[in-house]
Design a protein around this nucleic acid. Structure first.
Lengths: 225, 225
DNA sequence: ATAGTCACATGAGTCAGGCTCATTATTAAT
DNA sequence: ATTAATAATGAGCCTGACTCATGTGACTAT
């Protein structure tokens, strides 16, 4: 049966990606040996090249697969009927956990972007993953809970940028997941929320006072310095 | 004169780093040929290995030099007597501009961290660079303008994480510097400002005003004393 | 069954490029 | 000027990604 044959190939391809993922994670991209990957996938070295043009494209396939799984996991982690802020928290939790758990592969992701000549391509599956955040936030904007004047991409960069850096910090310090990172990040996102008119008016006044005082202080500091 | 000899070596080393920087930026780490770097630095290929143990350590030296220059530039960009928020804005401006202008080298930075076996080392000069932010923020905390209960490293990760992601977004879209990124980032940092709960009937705002006035008074006292 | 066809698999061999080291050149010291 | 020490050179070595001539098993037609 031709289905059997195709299935066998798909299994082989999957086995190859699993082996490659392990070796890349253990030894890094440069340290990974094609011979070792082949050995673990129980195929000949030359066979790899029937599935992937070269080491770089094998790496890209590995990374792509990783983010595809992550998208699946993220969607599963969201409570379908939760509020926008609730879903943001769930996504942040899931993302930070994943970054820490699979730190090695996340680090390797940037290597998959590199390609002789081209500046900064982006992998399709990462685009897909990022859309999870976009969807939540766009819902928030639609519900007029979030400020529509701030571009979504800027909020997205705050979200993912902060979590990525925090994950690196935590891993380098050998620390585990830290819930306060999420709390503080969500605190920030309150800033992006719509503010009610009366509160906004009040805040404006307070801000003016503070600004005036800051200016005075600045003048005095310059003089004395 | 022995000084002459040493100086000649230092010039050679500098020339080598300049050549290596150019080639790495043009061709990427993997695309860069040691032979090409040697040719541009006008030395023999083997000579490189008198200065740097291997390609990886040459890369590290290149990246280290880059961030050392950046630290110098950042310090120069700050107005010495500016307010904390003013200095944060100046640093953010400078940082985002640098990330965009030297995107290639910034991207290569992650490659300098990689080293067979070791997970995530950090380069000394990047630590140094990051301290510029820390110093500003610690001053803010000392002046009780920033919430001391939020760890500095978390605010730092928000700051650098957001700017790094924003820079990538802008570069990938072929867009130039975008001031609104900075504005929104600073807006977020307002959230980190002193927000201690009401003390003995005072509102947060009143407390902040009293603090600011106290600082002004302090400045004036120093002047007259 | 058997032969024929074709897709898939193999691994010894090729080659690029990072790196070494025996040799040569330059500088410093006496 | 001589010698010792230090610096520079580049032909060749060696590792490891990738190729390709050859092999093998699966499916089809007769």
């Amino acid at each position: 049966m031709s289905t059997t044959q195709r299935q066998r190939l798909e299994v082989r391809e999957e086995t190859l990606l699993v082996a490659a993922t392990a070796v890349f994670a253990e030894s890094g991209v440069d340290g990974a040996r094609m011979a070792e990957i082949a050995r673990r996938a129980d195929i000949a070295e030359g066979t790899i090249y029937l599935y992937h043009k070269n080491k770089q494209e094998l790496l890209e396939a590995v990374v792509d697969r990783f983010w595809r799984e992550l998208t699946r996991g993220a969607l599963a982690a969201l409570s379908p009927h939760g509020t926008v802020m609730q879903q943001l928290k769930e996504l942040a939790d899931y993302h930070l956990h994943s970054l820490i758990d699979d730190f090695k592969i996340v680090e390797i992701t940037s290597r998959a972007r590199e390609r002789q000549g081209e500046t900064g391509r982006q992998l399709p599956q990462i685009r897909e993953y990022v859309r999870v955040f976009d969807a939540i936030l766009e819902r928030g904007i639609g519900l007029q809970q979030f400020d529509a004047s701030i571009p979504v991409w800027q909020m997205r960069d705050v979200f993912y940028g902060t979590l990525e850096h925090s994950a690196r910090t935590l891993v380098l310090r050998n620390q585990a997941f830290d819930a306060s990172v999420i709390d503080n990040l969500l605190l920030l996102f309150e800033r992006f929320r719509q503010t009610t008119p009366e509160v906004a008016g009040q805040t404006k006044t307070e801000t003016s006072i503070m600004d005036a005082l800051a200016r005075i202080e600045s003048h005095l500091t310059k003089k004395s310095g």
